[in-house]
């Protein structure tokens, strides 16, 4: 099992993902530069958070044209796994690997704080170690995290059990009050039709050590590892 963490010039959570995977979980992982096209050596590709190419236009709008995304296309076509976190999620929607889009938070402000999310399904490579309705405390840090899609797409995501996480409060209530950014139906993370490409706005790599205020992020990476056990 080998992981790749993509490095766009403006990625800034690349080192955090690498640290959590390699030093906390002991997984074999490499950085892969955005100018490389070859991802054939990897089982799981992580698209980390940050500001890929500055994202002055629309988050991820330029990143989808980079060389490494061609390698990612092939990786996904061959059945490889990919997880986009925050900016990575934005890039995956821009590239068409995941439906919907992430627009500016309803508050128009950047929000960095702990969020509570509720696993909606155990049938995904990011939640296989969670029970349905497990509540995870994982921080968000974004300005464009409001997930939107047309009603048909939202219905389809629900119908196909492809909403992986929804924002909730500490007690697990999925409500408008517990929705930090205005996302449609409180969606915090989704998965592709193939169930091999997932995107989420919260940052699991930030909560893999108790010293940092929690370890719920481990559940997500351990779920990914479970696929290969």
């Amino acid at each position: 099992m080998k992981f790749a963490v993509l490095v766009f010039p403006g990625s800034n959570c690349d080192h955090d993902c690498y640290h959590a995977l390699k030093h906390v979980l002991g997984i074999s992982v490499d950085f892969v530069w955005h100018g490389d096209r070859d991802l054939t050596r990897y089982d799981v590709v992580i698209l980390p958070g940050g500001f890929s190419y500055g994202d002055y236009l629309r988050a991820g709008a330029i990143a989808r044209f980079s060389d490494v995304m061609k390698g990612l296309d092939q990786h996904i076509r061959k059945g490889g796994y990919a997880l986009g976190i925050c900016n990575g999620f934005q890039i995956l929607t821009e590239a068409g690997h995941l439906p919907g889009a992430l627009i500016q938070n309803r508050s128009t402000k950047f929000i960095c704080e702990d969020s509570y999310i509720k696993a909606q399904t155990g049938d995904s490579f990011v939640t296989s170690k969670c029970g349905v309705d497990d509540i995870l405390k994982i921080p968000i840090a974004h300005k464009e995290g409001c997930f939107v899609a047309d009603e048909d797409t939202l219905d389809q995501l629900d119908r196909e059990n492809r909403v992986v996480f929804r924002y909730c409060d500490q007690e697990g209530n999925v409500s408008e009050l517990a929705n930090p950014n205005g996302s449609a139906r409180n969606i915090a993370g989704i998965i592709s039709e193939s169930r091999r490409v997932a995107g989420m706005m919260p940052h699991p790599e930030r909560v893999c050590e108790e010293e940092l205020g929690g370890s719920h992020g481990l559940t997500i990476f351990q779920s990914v590892m479970e696929v290969f056990n």
Binding site: C112, A141, E205, E211
Partner: peptide, 26 residues
């Protein structure tokens, strides 16, 4: 401070809001 990313680099041991903020050296 909610508008500042205060956790990136995963070293922030004491977050904003306390007397001093603390980062760790991994």
């Amino acid at each position: 401070y909610r508008q500042y990313d205060h956790m990136v680099r995963t070293d922030t041991v004491v977050k904003p809001g306390s007397d001093a903020s603390v980062i760790r050296i991994k």
